[in-house]
């Protein structure tokens, strides 16, 4: 299935891009992130803290669907 992956802050800098379209069989954000780390080795140094799907906060074991936009957030630091 086709998924849009978006990276923010440190993830964007580590991956070297803000967004990519991927064809994947990953069933969950956790599996998808592992694929992203395999493609962009600099991501390996970072911990992913939160994930969102289609602008809704989601769990790492949520089910992915064709056409989803998955947002990977590095550890947040507001305030």
């Amino acid at each position: 299935m086709s998924i849009i992956v978006r990276y923010f802050a440190a993830f964007r800098e580590a991956a070297g891009l803000a967004e990519e379209h991927v064809d994947t069989t990953a069933a969950t954000p956790a599996a998808l992130f592992a694929e992203c780390v395999a493609r962009h080795s600099a991501l390996e140094r970072y911990t992913a803290s939160l994930v969102a799907i289609n602008d809704e906060m989601a769990g790492w074991e949520s089910e992915l669907s064709d056409g989803d936009e998955v947002l990977f957030f590095p550890p947040v630091a507001g305030g």
């Binding site: 923010f8 802050a9 969102a52 947040v76 630091a77 507001g78 305030g79």
Partner: peptide
């Protein structure tokens, strides 16, 4: 807010 908002500080 510090735990949950998608905000990053450089």
């Amino acid at each position: 807010a510090k735990l949950r908002l998608p905000i990053w500080k450089k």
